[in-house]
């Protein structure tokens, strides 16, 4: 399983703060592959990950990550907008 977390407007749009995604044993996916899979669900997923959506950043295991970063079972993958603290 991969634990997926959504923050800020992504969570608002989806109406959920997270979900689990099945990833089998030694399968190595990537942030990009998982995003593409989510986007193909359509509806709100298409809105947040599709063309014309706002910029989305990601983190794998609480480290900023790139689209080609690997994702494995047991990882925590978070999607969020560019940060605006301080």
């Amino acid at each position: 399983m991969v634990e997926i977390l959504y923050f800020a407007w992504l969570r608002d749009r989806l109406g959920r703060s997270g979900e689990s995604l099945l990833l089998s044993g030694d399968e190595v996916s990537s942030v990009r592959a998982i995003m593409d899979g989510l986007r193909r669900r359509g509806a709100a997923y298409e809105e947040i990950f599709g063309e014309g959506a706002g910029p989305v950043r990601c983190a794998v295991n609480q480290e900023f990550a790139a689209l080609d970063s690997p994702v494995r079972a047991g990882d925590e993958l978070a999607f969020f907008p560019p940060v605006t603290g301080g």
Partner: peptide, 22 residues
Amino acid sequence: KTQAPFWKREEYPNGEARWVAA
């Protein structure tokens, strides 16, 4: 401000709310 994951949402007296853009 650029590296710590915080997000701000603005709330207005008329009930409107808007996520702040970076």
